[in-house]
Simulated assay, not measured.
Amino acid sequence: MYAFDSRIRYSETDSEGRLTLNALLNYFQDCSTFHSEDVGLGIGYMKEIGQVWVLSAWQIVVNRYPQLGEKVRIVTLPYELKAFLGYRNFAMLDEKGEYIAKANSLWSLLDVATGKPVMVNEDMRRGYGIDEKLDMDYAPRKITVPEGGQLLEPIVVKKHHLDTNHHVNNGQYVNIAMEYLPDDFVIRQMRVEYKKQAFLDDVLHPYVVQTETGYIICLQDEEGRLYVSVEFLR
Rank of each mutant, 00 (worst) to 15 (best):
V120A: 11
L81C: 06
D135I: 05
P117G: 06
E95L: 11
P140M: 08
N121R: 13
F90M: 09
K82G: 08
V120W: 10
G129L: 09
K102G: 03
L106N: 02
G127P: 03
Y99V: 13
Y138R: 08
M136P: 07
F84T: 01
Y138G: 01
G129M: 08
F84I: 01
A83Q: 09
M136K: 13
Y99E: 13
K82L: 14
M124V: 12
V145M: 11
S105D: 07
D123Q: 14
A101M: 02
W107Y: 14
K133H: 04
D131P: 05
G127V: 02
L106Q: 05
E95H: 11
G115I: 01
M136E: 11
M124D: 01
R141D: 04
G115E: 02
S108R: 04
E98M: 10
V145K: 04
R125V: 08
M136F: 14
D94Q: 05
A91G: 12
M119L: 14
L93N: 09
K142C: 04
L85M: 15
G97F: 11
T114M: 01
E122I: 01
D135K: 09
E122M: 03
A139W: 01
D131L: 06
L110R: 11
E95Y: 07
R141G: 00
R126T: 04
R125W: 05
D111Q: 03
M92S: 02
D137A: 13
L93P: 07
M124I: 11
F90Y: 15
V145T: 10
P140N: 08
A83G: 05
D123C: 11
N104G: 13
V112F: 14
R126H: 05
K133D: 04
L110G: 10
E132H: 10
D94G: 03
P117L: 05
Y99F: 14
R126L: 06
E98W: 03
N104P: 00
L93R: 12
D111W: 00
E132G: 09
A113P: 09
I100F: 11
S105K: 03
I100L: 15
A139P: 00
M92Y: 01
G86D: 05
E98Y: 04
A101P: 00
R88D: 03
